[in-house]
Nucleic acid binder design. Sequence first.
DNA 1: GCCAACGTTGGC
DNA 2: GCCAACGTTGGC
Length: 134
Amino acid sequence: MNYWLIKTEPSVFSWQDLLKKGRTDWDGVRNYQARNNLKLMQKGDLCLVYHSNEGLCVMGIAKVSKAFYQDPTTDDERWVAVEVKPQRTLKHPLSLQTIKQDDILKEMVFVKQQRLSVSPVTADEFNRVVMLGA
DNA sequence: GCCAACGTTGGC
DNA sequence: GCCAACGTTGGC
């Protein structure tokens, strides 16, 4: 099982929207590195869902419910989507500020590569987020 | 709203 | 294949 962090702008699609819908195509990724990460996701992998631009915090954990398939928002075969379902909401959403101040979490790929919208998370990092936020 | 970081495009 | 110009992301 692998862990990931996926970003979304809450004004476009928020964690609350995901809770309401119960599932969603995680689509619209148009960056090769992020796309490659989507292709590596397997059913059952867990994703930290982060609000970018507004909120700036990890809101909850989603589970990959379908491995990658053609991105339904484009005919361009280069791009893929995965399906995710909400798994749990963090009682204490974890702010970027907190993440940057934490010795374990500040090493996350997500912190170091600001613009990457889908990034890998280690088991240690994932467990740390759960410990601080659950 | 600004701007740093960085990805993409296109001329040569 | 290099690199300048340009566009986008996302924190502040």
